[in-house]
Design a protein around this nucleic acid. Structure first.
Lengths: 291, 291
DNA sequence: TATCCATTATAGCAGATTCGTATAGTCGTC
DNA sequence: GACGACTATACGAATCTGCTATAATGGATA
């Protein structure tokens, strides 16, 4: 059973005569004739009665038409879907990400990305960086963003490094400095990430190196929480300049010395080929993370 | 988009390598290769990554596979339905019939007919003969059975004529006669069809011709009702020997003289070609009505 | 490193399919 | 009986299909 036969059959059922069906399909009448003859021969059905040089569909033709039309529609649908996939209008994007980025930056980028992709399905899962690392290795995600370092580094990994900045209320006396050091923060109430975090370690070293007293008044799991505490006037803190930017709207941001390094990475599944969609989104994400 | 391309694609997705897919489809590996290349070119999708001489399906291929498989199934289904129609396993039969035949004989024949036709859909509508005649002219039925005469006789009509028989309880004194005439029934309680029915007219003429008194104690619309009254001992009556046979199980049936003619006809839609199914059933029905 | 093995890709050819043109056949209508 | 509308058949050119032969690739192995 060939597709062209079904197309001819449908056109013939819809338009009554081979001559008209041929016009509609942009082919010759004898072409239709042989197609229909072939279809009748192959199915073994008498689809039309030849009465006086005219065609009359048999009840069998009407029964078969339902299925033929359905089959054609399914094929045409497959064709349309292929076009949608190609143009990036259809697809899905499953992203695993750590909290700070999945709260603001990712949704912002995704809604921009989805603007001209009507059939896009997006799934974001928020987990801590270790879990994100595990998830991406199970191949269930197209993309992941995690903080470094990772216990088991993976091969397809694009790293972004940032020098952390000091954040403090505009009204804070230190806000008038161009650059801030541990000396400036001697005894100043400080909001930091948890003890286990590399940021914590680096800060501890920095303060001890400068011989300044580090007055930790709050430890948080995420930069976003720390930002909110600083906004509320609980103290000053440190933050990355890109991912956390949306959380530091009302705050003063100043370079911090010595360098406190913060690294994140885009992870891709290793054994899986990345989808075009994922590659396109990575481009957008990369631009945002480089900025 | 050609069917063979989709088949190759499906086989390749299911079996991983072109070599195996080729085996399964009974074709050569280069054949698959060119088919897939053609499909990729026509859809504009990169369906497989060529990594180290092996194929790895892209996420796009997985998305497209869903639709491709669906389309193939629809086509295969159409093919299967065609076979079912051809073998008479699928189809419908809409029959309009007058009451006496639609109560016993038609259901009996239809259940026999449906025994080896699992997908057969049957619709029986019971109306009086005039309505049946109208219904069949609206082309909504494959087949109709009506009593004659009809106001507007239709062309496609196969007539069956019967000589009515006298029915009476086995215990009735007249049951020992070989043949019964109006003389024998002089004054005997008689069950007949309604006044407007040709049977009524013919009986009235017969009795008056023989100079016998026709003692009508009941008029019914259908033979089946009349049969039941006779069975209950309300009187004797007259009945056709074939259609009503199922209703006269416990009764004595004797030839009646003079001839009382009862005619029915199988009607076919005129402008519609009859389905193979209908033609097959007509054969069965014809054999039953001729018996 | 060289060789073998399993795989995919390409070239060339024969046969099948498709589809056009030309033409004949059929039927209803004027 | 001619005409118009339609379908069927014949035939040839272009295209498609699918084969064999063969090259190319890369992993495994000695």
């Amino acid at each position: 059973m060939r597709l062209r036969q079904l197309e001819c059959f449908r056109a013939l059922m819809l338009h009554g005569t081979m001559t008209r069906a041929a016009e509609l399909l942009g082919m010759s009448q004898p072409g239709i004739s042989t197609m229909i003859a072939g279809l009748e021969h192959e199915t073994g059905l008498t689809l039309f009665l030849r009465r006086g040089g005219r065609l009359q569909p048999t009840p069998e033709a009407k029964l078969f038409y339902v299925e033929a039309a359905r089959a054609l529609e399914a094929v045409e649908n497959a064709s349309r879907v292929a076009a949608e996939i190609r143009s990036g209008r259809r697809g899905h994007l499953a992203i695993a990400a750590y909290p700070s980025i999945s709260i603001k930056l990712l949704p912002r980028l995704l809604s921009q990305f989805a603007r001209d992709r009507p059939e896009l399905q997006v799934k974001i899962i928020t987990r801590n960086s270790a879990t994100v690392r595990e998830l991406v290795s199970t191949q269930q995600f197209d993309l992941a963003v995690a903080e470094l370092p990772l216990d088991y580094p993976t091969s397809h990994m694009e790293v972004f490094s940032y020098d952390c900045m000091c954040m403090l209320p505009h009204a804070h006396p230190l806000a008038k400095l161009k650059q801030i050091t541990p000396d400036d923060l001697d005894g100043v109430p400080f909001v930091t990430l948890f003890r286990g975090d590399p940021i914590y370690q680096q800060l501890a070293s920095a303060f001890s190196e400068y011989g300044a007293r580090w007055n930790v008044v709050a430890e948080t799991e995420f930069f976003s929480t720390a930002c909110q505490l600083v906004t509320e006037g609980r103290g000053v803190g440190i933050v990355d300049p890109v991912v956390s930017k949306p959380f530091t709207e009302g705050l003063a941001i100043r370079p911090f010395k010595p360098r406190i390094q913060y690294q994140i990475a885009i992870l891709s599944p290793t054994h899986e080929a990345p989808s075009q969609m994922a590659q396109d989104f990575v481009k957008l994400l990369r631009r945002a993370l480089r900025a």
